[in-house]
């Protein structure tokens, strides 16, 4: 009991900062009620369209819910989860998803960085490059699909046409198991690199000029300044881009669904397509929910790990 601090002792301990505290207390807006009022529309939508579906989905994952309405939504306990862990399709599609994430995250960080550096370090016509590099990001996925399915077309597509000029045999870009995922990664790089490019460009513009001036005074050349000023200053942005990119890549669905539907032979089928097919074309909503929760759990673990790694590096 002796260790319990008395109000007097606490007051004494905090006396140095009481002045600040009082100031903070008076500055704090009193009208907490109005704040809630402003937040209500958002909270209502947030609850209705995120919290509630997440809850329903979780509940469904413990039932045999069917899209046909035939099942009586009986609770099946952990059956769906047991099935998911033993389902080779889950592992295969998860593997595809991870492979896609690796294939896209690395170039989407590096290429975006290179593009931003090139534009920032004074290529003439900055606005044109900025527009050109970002433009593809503005396209809807259906347009991206149309453009690339034409480019990839093995018999009359432009890519194979170009290869032909150099006497190289055409490649079955999307129908050969060896190339399909690489082709999709290429499309994704082209489509989404603009966003990361923009983040990098903004970060580059935020680096204070005096750092470069000081480095130049110390006799640092262009490469030295890049390695010792620019890149360290971009570390935080790189961390952010990497985290965002891994999450975006793990959630891949649309471009694959449009370009290959997961083929050939399941080589590009991501886990989200498996979840979609299971729930909506094979009617097994309960099982599909379970698989999606397994995946959800994995994303959460991965994101936390990533954030930990990057925040530790910054310290």
């Amino acid at each position: 009991m002796a260790s319990v601090s008395t109000p007097a002792r606490r007051a004494a301990a905090g006396s140095r900062r009481t002045g600040f505290r009082r100031a903070a207390a008076t500055d704090r807006p009193r009208s907490g009620g109005a704040g809630w009022l402003f937040a209500t529309p958002f909270l209502a939508f947030f609850t209705l369209f995120l919290i509630v579906p997440i809850g329903i989905g979780l509940w469904m994952s413990f039932t045999d819910a069917s899209l046909t309405g035939h099942g009586d939504n009986t609770l099946v306990g952990l059956d769906n989860y047991t099935e998911a862990f033993g389902d080779s399709q889950v592992w295969q599609t998860l593997g595809n998803t991870v492979w896609f994430t690796v294939l896209t995250t690395v170039p989407l960080v590096l290429v975006a960085l290179v593009m931003a550096l090139l534009v920032y370090t004074g290529m003439p016509g900055q606005w044109l490059w900025r527009l050109a590099f970002f433009a593809s990001h503005l396209l809807p996925v259906a347009v991206v699909y149309q453009i690339w399915s034409m480019l990839f077309q093995p018999d009359r597509g432009m890519l194979n046409g170009l290869l032909k000029i150099f006497g190289i045999d055409g490649i079955a870009w999307l129908t050969d198991e060896k190339y399909a995922m690489w082709s999709i990664a290429l499309v994704t790089l082209w489509w989404t690199v603009g966003f990361n490019f923009l983040l990098y460009l903004a970060a580059l513009q935020a680096i204070p000029d005096h750092l470069y001036e000081a480095a130049a005074l110390d006799g640092a050349g262009a490469w030295r300044r890049l390695w010792s000023v620019t890149l360290p200053q971009l570390r935080r942005t790189t961390g952010l881009i990497a985290v965002l990119q891994v999450m975006a890549s793990l959630k891949v669905f649309d471009q694959i669904y449009l370009l290959t539907k997961g083929g050939p032979n399941g080589a590009t089928r991501p886990i989200l397509e498996y979840i979609y097919d299971t729930g909506f074309t094979n009617y097994r909503l309960g099982y599909a929910s379970a698989v999606s929760y397994v995946f959800f759990g994995l994303i959460i673990i991965l994101s936390i790990a990533q954030l930990k790694i990057f925040s530790r590096r910054e310290d």
Binding site: A172, T175, D176, E177, K178, K261, G262, G263, P264, N265, G266, D277
Partner: peptide, 16 residues
């Protein structure tokens, strides 16, 4: 049907 087609495609294309 999608799965059957994806299994057949490489054989029709000559890669398997």
């Amino acid at each position: 049907q999608t799965r059957m087609c994806q299994a057949l495609d490489p054989a029709l294309g000559g890669s398997s």
